[in-house]
Design a protein around this nucleic acid. Structure first.
Length: 422
RNA sequence: GGAGAGAUGGCAGAGUGGUCGAAUGCGGCGGUCUUGAAAACCGUUGACUGUUAAAGGUCCAGGGGUUCGAAUCCCUUUCUCUCCGCCA
């Protein structure tokens, strides 16, 4: 959520930013400002009345003590009147607050200056490319054929016990999952991240904290009996660790990493692009989350991007980095880098990581602050996948397939206990 | 699932319906002392809103009620703890 102060003081900047994000309802800005004005006016009136009522109540107390009951009765009559108006004012105030909040929740974060204009994924800016696109042998096939040929991932079995999008990993397929998770966690630890194992079910407050609720409600699995949600990413529980927290300046930077399964309903997705491992309802991901001082957050973002690229390099996968355009960025992000690996058999780029700086957009909802010279200031939050497994697996299988089997990258051998799937 | 107890400031923990935004202790910060540190002593130390700054207002789990006045009384929701049952 944006800060109302920003709207009041830098309206033009806000409008320009919203436009870049292709936010259609620019008139909301004026609506919010009008309500805000009304809200403050109401608050002022109410405060004055409350102040008066408080004084009267106090003097009644005094009068009672000194036994001047008659005078006290007189004052009592006066307060009943105040009470009436206060009740009305209170109602008006909470109505203003609610209205203002609802409108504020509709507004996306403002994009960073470097974010390119654009509406579609085609307008994302390719920042850099790395590695050679492999030339596969003639009989090369997409990963969903490889998985059944070597019997390492069974989509049919998953259909049987749960449904589409819940594959069963078997044998070397399962071990590959485990190896990747451990590899990603170990790398993060080397980089200085603190490992966290959070719950994978979260309550409503956490959903609101990171912004999945209310807008993306339909994308999460919801346990109605207990009103809990399956997490769509470890970002949700890990970032919410810091909800309602006031940190000290010396606590920064805070760097957490966590492995969790992730659950996404992916309502509305269909077709060839969701085949095989390309899009699943349940998948594994290692996520990095950082809390940063505002002045350092963009430097932090670059470091996170370089870190994720390092993982891809170690896995010997060709990749490119995109700077997402205003229209393709997520609601809460101020700047996002997407990392895509090239999947040679499908001949397309697959998004495997998304690294974002949310500035104070999330922390404003989370009330995540730190003390700075006696005042509390919103911290900045960042996160990134490091990495999501399914598409990495897809690319590893496809790009490394040979007539003799699938040759896995060296860095994984100690984790796997084998070097090829044949 | 059954029975009971509870929810107060960073933590622990007081709080007869009126001067309680809240005792006290610990912790934090500043200082005295010390070569330095510890100890001791002194002072200071919640958040939000509002304002140029103040004043003012709100917050004792959440919501509602009684009252001139609620941390304190009533209702309700949520959560936590203890005992029993079940159990990886």
């Amino acid at each position: 959520m944006l800060q109302i102060q920003t709207l009041r003081e830098q309206k033009d900047l806000v409008l320009a930013g919203l436009k870049k994000k292709n936010f259609a309802r620019l008139e909301i800005v004026d609506e919010v400002l009008a309500i805000d004005e009304k809200r403050r006016q109401t608050q002022f009136e109410l405060d004055n009345n409350l102040s008066e009522a408080k004084q009267i109540a106090k003097s009644i107390g005094e009068l009672m003590k000194t036994g001047k009951a008659a005078e006290a009765e007189q004052l009592k009559a006066k307060t009943t009147e105040l009470k009436e108006t206060n009740k009305a004012l209170e109602e008006k105030l909470s109505q203003c607050e609610e209205e203002q909040k609802q409108l504020m929740l509709l507004m996306p974060n403002l994009p960073h200056n470097s974010v390119p204009f654009g509406k579609t994924p085609e307008e994302n800016e390719v920042v850099l490319s790395h590695g050679e696109i492999p030339i596969l042998y003639n009989e090369a096939v997409p990963h969903w054929e490889l998985t059944s040929r070597y019997d390492i991932i069974d989509f049919e079995l998953g259909n049987k016990i749960t449904g589409a999008g819940f594959p069963v990993y078997k044998g070397k397929g399962a071990r590959l999952q485990r190896a990747l998770i451990n590899f990603f966690l170990d790398e993060a630890l080397k980089e200085g991240y603190l490992e966290i194992q959070p719950p994978i079910l979260v309550n409503e407050d956490s959903g609101y904290g990171t912004g999945q609720l209310p807008d993306k409600e339909g994308q999460m699995y919801h346990m109605q009996v207990d009103n809990l949600y399956c997490i769509p990413t470890a970002e949700v529980p890990i970032t919410n660790l810091y909800r309602d927290v006031v940190l000290n300046e010396q606590d920064f930077p805070i760097r957490n990493v966590g492995y969790t399964p992730c659950f996404r309903r992916e309502a509305g997705s269909y077709g060839a692009h969701v085949r095989g491992l390309n899009r699943l309802h349940q998948f594994d991901k290692v996520e990095i989350v950082q809390l940063s001082l505002p002045e350092n957050s963009y430097e932090t973002l670059e470091k996170m991007s370089i870190y994720v690229q390092g993982l891809l390099q170690k896995l010997e996968l060709p990749y490119r980095v995109l700077r997402l355009c205003g229209g393709d960025m997520s609601f809460a992000s101020a700047l996002t880098y997407d990392m895509e690996v090239y999947s040679a058999a499908q001949q397309r780029w697959l998004e495997v990581s998304s690294v974002s700086n949310f500035e104070s957009f999330q922390s404003n909802r989370l009330k995540l602050r730190y003390r700075k010279e006696g005042k509390t200031v919103l911290a900045h939050t960042l996160n990134g996948s490091a990495l999501a497994l399914p598409r990495i697996v897809a690319a590893l299988l496809e790009n490394n397939q040979t007539a003799d089997g699938i040759l896995l990258p060296k860095v994984l051998h100690p984790y796997l206990g084998f070097d090829k799937i044949a």
